[in-house]
Design a protein around this nucleic acid. Structure first.
Lengths: 146, 146
DNA sequence: TATTAATATATAGCATGCTATGTAACATTG
DNA sequence: CAATGTTACATAGCATGCTATATATTAATA
């Protein structure tokens, strides 16, 4: 009957996620970046000029979440929203020069955090860990879709 | 050089944590509970009358986070803050009858979410997953402490 | 014992994420 | 082509979590 928090995957996952965010945040703060902006930047570094809808689809975040983060990124001089000639409802999101210059140091910071987190694991176990996470994500997504 | 989000443990962990929270939230919302209240309730179900400081130590959350969540729980009729006769600075947190009555259904909901998430994994892999998470948490905590 | 330091909690302000809802532009259809 | 529906985005409001700071009480010390 008893439910042990320390044996609960859900709590451990939440804890681990907070630690990841903290470790990354600490390292990208000097760059003027925050954790929530990071995934959006990754997509735009790969392909500039995406729409908000594109970002929502790629990041599995809610539309409102992305809209708010983009507003803060615009405020912080990381992106510009330009009208989309193909569709008056949407806008193309473009990186500023500043944001483009941050790709190398920022991705390096993320790489370092991943390395620190997985330091004690063998290469096999790292791969297994990522695979297990993928399976869990799949199971939870399936549940979410009824 | 390229940094692949889909190969990044950090992003996968964040994604997984959001899915866990969503799956749990959906199931405890009918009980009038939220995900942030849940860990606090688990501690108080185990031992009523803890102080805020006790909760902070047990949950690895910041003091301000716990204080704010407790305020919402008080507002929602889940807890009462009673003066601590041993120390005028602190208060003892006590569950209401309502909160006590929610232990069984709420822990059951959490159990179900864990089961769904780990459904596709063998018992061995589940244990390994929890163990790997523990190692990663340890590594990140070590990093955080310099 | 009066002062100073430490502790427990509260509060302000912010980022991230959510749901729900509003609005303008585009698409469909009667 | 007008009415209706759909789509893309914005906004409001909230929970969770953080840092920084204020306040009140207790502890330590000069």
């Amino acid at each position: 009957m008893s439910f042990d928090k320390d044996q609960s995957t859900g709590f451990a996952v939440n804890h681990m996620a907070r630690l990841f965010a903290s470790a990354l945040g600490e390292r990208i703060q000097p760059l003027g970046l925050t954790t929530g902006q990071f995934p959006i930047l990754l997509e735009l570094w790969r392909e500039d000029g995406l729409t908000q809808k594109d970002l929502v689809a790629r990041l599995d975040l809610e539309q409102a979440t992305v809209a708010n983060t983009l507003t803060r990124m615009e405020r912080d001089g990381l992106i510009l929203r330009k009208p989309n000639p193909e569709d008056g409802r949407s806008q193309r999101i473009h990186l500023t020069r500043t944001a483009r210059a941050l790709e190398a140091p920022a991705t390096k910071a993320a790489q370092i955090v991943n390395d620190i987190a997985l330091k004690s694991l063998t290469s096999d176990k790292r791969a297994m860990f990522l695979d297990l996470i993928g399976q869990v994500i799949g199971a939870l997504q399936a549940d979410l879709r009824r």
